[in-house]
Write a protein that binds this DNA or RNA. Structure first.
Lengths: 222, 222
DNA sequence: TATTATATTTTGAGCAGTCAAAACACTGCG
DNA sequence: CGCAGTGTTTTGACTGCTCAAAATATAATA
């Protein structure tokens, strides 16, 4: 049985890897995401390698094994179902959800999660549009394309916000950038480093930086 | 901020003390209830004394301070609200509830508990009839009298089952002994060490030992 | 009172996770 | 090539919690 610290490392390695696109996750990145010193991360990762959850290449970085990936998906499933519950049932605000979910996900049993999923009606995505892995570990591939790849003039619908940072999420919510909302792309300037979109329902115009726009996935239509 | 181990010790000291009726809680009892060796309990209790959560009298036992009592009530509140949620909302069976609640209660925030309480509609007791302390730490005094003090012929209603032991609770549930059910007392024999009651709705007769009957609280009526 | 049983405390050790700081290994640049 | 800067690993130490086993105190019984 993995400790909750191990669970946390594995989850972070998974999401950092996703964030990175490809290649191994370097120690600096891991230690920063975990909020520990680099030496601590090294020690831990050597242990994780021994128990076959990761493959550790000294001085390069770390990758999840199949076993590690399974654990990561189980954690993601927990996290996202709990987030959905906190927001939709208990009425949490977006700014409050993450911290509580983070603590709960290490304390709940599989039974709890399965019953919670049933109670919630088997949602496919959480409130930020992140897909929820099934009990068997299946996960939908990311749908949508990054907003910063959309040409001006296109109409897009927000599909997913890829980030657990509270400030990011709250800002997006306040700008109506939540899954399901329709926008028109007004401008996309790599030079200026910004993407400008207009909320179709309210005519409200929002400009976001190029980098954050990459973490907003949309589906194009029209 | 107390660790979850500390929280657990404090909760156990509270309930063992309640179980005992009065006096200090001896180390043997504490260590057994905690599932640790006596030496471990001693070490821990000395620490708890230092941080003013308990008063530790060497070779006698341990008592909660005011501060400790407050923490215990906060844990009881968590535990009982979570149990109520697991059973009434997620559909847990009585036999499954305890273990999961025990792990969750150390992981949830005050915010979570307050929102959960609101969602559940501010219940006053959990499914076993145990009173739920309020956010301010107030708790209803135990209502009801022990079943083993009831004379034959009386009609009683189950008010509360004082025990967290899964086997005890499951047995009682299978015998219809759950809060709200009406019974007639048929026999109460200190000599035989048994109490025999009849479930009025089904005419079913159940005999329980004298000791367990002391952990069944009832209200007399008629 | 002396002896035995039982409860309790002490001691020494170990595990998981962490840090600070020193040692080390790779860039890449002059 | 040699050296600086950055990222990485090693080392030694500490905290919180635990155990096993030895030492000690208390209570019970003969």
């Amino acid at each position: 049985m993995p400790t909750s610290t191990v669970e946390q490392y594995i989850k972070i390695i998974y999401t950092q890897r996703e964030h990175l696109g490809e290649g191994v996750v370097p120690m600096k990145r891991l230690s920063e995401a975990m909020g520990v010193t680099p030496g601590t991360a090294t020690t831990m990762v050597k242990h994780l390698d021994e128990v076959e959850l990761v493959r550790y290449q000294p001085r390069q970085g770390v990758l999840l094994t199949e076993k590690g990936e399974n654990l990561a998906l189980r954690m993601l499933r927990r996290h996202r179902l709990i987030e959905t519950f906190l927001e939709q049932v208990l009425g949490y605000d977006w700014s409050e959800v993450h911290a509580d979910a983070e603590r709960l996900e290490h304390a709940v049993s599989d039974r709890f999660i399965d019953k919670l999923e049933d109670y919630l009606g088997y949602p496919e995505v959480d409130p930020h549009g992140d897909p929820i892995p099934t009990a068997s570990g299946a996960i939908e591939p990311a749908i949508g394309i990054p907003l910063n790849t959309c040409a001006p003039g296109r109409r897009v619908q927000i599909a997913r916000l890829i980030d657990d940072d509270t400030d990011f999420l709250v800002y997006m919510k306040n700008s109506m950038i939540v899954p399901g909302q329709d926008f028109g792309v007004r401008e996309n300037s790599a030079v200026a480093g910004t993407v400008t979109i207009e909320h179709l329902a309210t005519r409200r115009v929002v400009t976001v930086g190029f980098e954050p726009a990459g973490r907003i996935l949309v589906s194009e239509h029209g």
